[in-house]
Design a binder for these strands. Structure first.
Lengths: 185, 185
DNA sequence: CGCGATATATATCTATTCGATATAGGCCTT
DNA sequence: AAGGCCTATATCGAATAGATATATATCGCG
């Protein structure tokens, strides 16, 4: 999914500024499975304007420079529906922490300990964040969209599983590092 | 982690050609948490040569063009140890399938069904693949590196959790899609 | 026995994308 | 009142992905 499609998707949920689109990938509903940076969002929005898939309205603000609010056109909504007809590419995870832990033997034990403990905490925090959004949504009594519900639940389930696995294997890892060159029996 | 560091890491495990480095990210031990393409691996290897961190040896093959086998120098090993001293960046997952499932309501029910079933199957296949490598390693009776063991176990645990979550929420999703515009009560 | 598909192997090119940076006013905390 | 953070837009250079070109070998299938 290229950034143009990602912008179409965010705008399909309602009008937004470039900054707000960025936030949707940082702490919003897309945070745990897609990302995009300013350097790709702004060019993508320009292209959407040029192709007539979106329109922008400069909204005045007191003191601050104008906000530029983007909104999909009818052609934009059609383009979005074409885009979600495409075949998905395989998932990809990139984890520097797992990369470092893979080389745990080459690192000081205290660092390995700090890495794994921080990693567990960050997964727990992510799971809590998403669970908070879900509780809020459920409490509001609003209609629950089954797709969005499944996807946010996936985030919670996977992050919890990751944290639990790490928590229950942490000590074995650290113990394993204590006997540096012993052969397995 | 940039591709140069990734190449240093693979080469720290033994000499390899560019092609073999690519495979380490496709089906090798790094497959489930890092990736790199030819377009970044070959320029990275050239830079490593230029900086004296690696050396290459052209090995003749009958019929085929020469293989170019890369190997770390002492400086390369030192650079690798400096690199794994860096602070890791936060994990990032990119999943087109979750993106599509988020918009399940905008898709035909048969497609949602095919997407989720294929997704479950691919996670199960990944988990089986890694578990196979682990069983092989354990059966060989060789010394078990605790870092590598933890990281591969993480892959199995998380992939299984993902597949299980999807399998147990699949039917609820499809049922939810059947009553298109009913309000929750 | 040949056909196509797959695997080995290196390398480059273009378009995309990231991450850092520039700019600037307002708000909050110390 | 000073410094840091938040909102907000935008651009630039470097890194990267993905497609493509080239060449050969092997393997299964009819």
């Amino acid at each position: 999914m290229d950034v143009k499609t990602l912008c179409l998707a965010v705008l399909s949920q309602g009008e937004a500024t470039g900054y707000e689109i960025k936030k949707a990938f940082e702490e919003g509903p897309f945070a745990h499975f897609q990302r995009a940076s300013f350097g790709s969002i702004y060019p993508a929005l320009s292209k959407l304007l040029a192709e007539g898939l979106a329109e922008a309205e400069a909204r005045e603000q007191d003191g601050r420079p104008d906000k530029k609010v983007y909104r999909l056109t009818a052609a934009g909504r059609a383009a979005f529906h074409r885009a979600i007809g495409q075949e998905p590419e395989p998932d990809q995870l990139r984890s520097d922490v797992l990369f470092l832990l893979y080389f745990a033997r080459e690192l000081p034990k205290e660092r390995v300990e700090a890495l794994i403990d921080g990693y567990i905490a960050s997964y727990r925090a992510q799971a809590d964040r998403i669970e908070g959004c879900r509780a809020e949504r459920a409490a509001a009594g609003a209609e629950i969209d089954p797709g969005k519900w499944l996807v946010s639940g996936f985030g919670v389930a996977v992050y919890r599983a990751a944290a639990d696995y790490l928590a229950s294997n942490r000590d074995a890892l650290l113990r394993g590092l204590e006997r540096p060159l012993e052969a397995a029996e």
